[in-house]
């Protein structure tokens, strides 16, 4: 399974809009949404008849057995995460604040504290015959981890390992989840936005991908919102020898498409035409990198 990963330094650049158009154009049989903090890809995909939901666990969290607890307060004094609270004279654990370090369980003289498995989110695998879509959601207060992103990709690989290629909507930022998104990717398409912060985000993500040895292509979304900065991004790519695959203009139709649960290629519109060209170039580059 070859992996085309779509990335951006920050959310809101139109990554999912482009990913959904690519999925339609490629008639992809395998795709995943690794943006688990705020997954959106499922909103523009047709409903699937089959879904498999698995609990995702982070670190175990502390629980105090009130029948054994003598309220000595050692746990409260030593917890660095302010996760132990005194409520009506009884010490309790705030599961949102608990980070699972296990120190309170170690220190409790009454052995009243145990670590229990804590659900931090759900892995979701949707299938329709030979078409598979993998994604996940997080519980409130939980953050993305490289582990969850790896599991999203692994469950796709398990059912669609033989599929020629998969399109993956990556995680934003430059942290561990992005590294996990990049691991095993054959090409990363970076979606850049022509703004000062957009350019600095793009440079950071390019550096991260380059260190992992993943080949990179860049496209600009909403390119006409600042022509000068778009030109700057393009010349940066030429100078750095990064494959530039095109510009997609701002297009109100893109918003309409999303709201109708469709993709920009389902309409005759400027952004749809542009994304077809970006897709063709990206695919050509993916084929070349695989051949090499």
């Amino acid at each position: 399974m070859k992996q085309l990963l779509i990335l951006s330094g920050k959310g809101g650049t139109g990554k999912t809009t482009i990913a959904s158009a690519f999925i339609r154009l490629a008639q992809a049989k395998a795709y995943a949404d690794c943006d688990v903090d705020a997954p959106n890809l499922h909103l523009v995909m047709a409903p699937f008849p089959n879904e498999k939901i698995t609990d995702y666990h982070g670190l175990d969290k502390a629980v105090i057995d009130s029948s054994r607890c003598t309220n000595c307060g050692i746990c409260l004094d030593n917890c660095r995460f302010h996760a132990i609270k005194l409520q009506d004279g009884q010490h309790i654990v705030d599961p949102i604040a608990c980070e699972g370090c296990t120190l309170c369980a170690f220190l409790c003289p009454e052995k009243a504290i145990t670590m229990v498995q804590a659900k931090a989110g759900e892995l979701k695998l949707y299938s329709n015959k030979d078409e598979h879509f993998s994604t996940a959601t997080l519980s409130m207060g939980s953050g993305t981890t490289g582990l969850l992103v790896t599991q999203v990709k692994n469950q796709l690989k398990e059912v669609a390992g033989e599929t020629e290629f998969a399109i993956i909507d990556g995680s934003p930022g430059i942290g561990c989840p992005v590294i996990a998104s990049l691991t095993g990717a054959d090409l990363a398409l970076v979606v850049a936005e022509p703004s000062i912060s957009g350019i600095s985000d793009m440079k950071r993500i390019i550096l991260t991908a380059a260190k992992l040895g993943v080949p990179i292509a860049v496209c600009i979304n909403k390119s006409d919102t600042n022509d000068e900065l778009s030109a700057k991004i393009e010349s940066f790519c030429w100078k750095e020898g990064i494959f530039f695959v095109g510009k997609i203009p701002f297009d109100p139709m893109a918003i309409q498409a999303v709201n109708e649960g469709k993709t920009i290629i389902d309409y005759a519109c400027d952004s749809g035409t542009a994304v077809r060209q970006v897709y063709a170039k990206t695919l050509q580059m993916l084929k070349e990198t695989i051949r090499r």
């Binding site: 982070g58 670190l59 980070e99 939980s142 953050g143 993305t144 981890t145 490289g146 930022g173 430059i174 942290g175 561990c176 989840p177 992005v178 590294i179 991260t208 260190k211 992992l212 040895g213």
Partner: peptide
């Protein structure tokens, strides 16, 4: 040769 930084953000 290339060893990558393993940034670890979030929990």
């Amino acid at each position: 040769k290339e060893v990558h930084a393993g940034y670890h953000n979030g929990h």
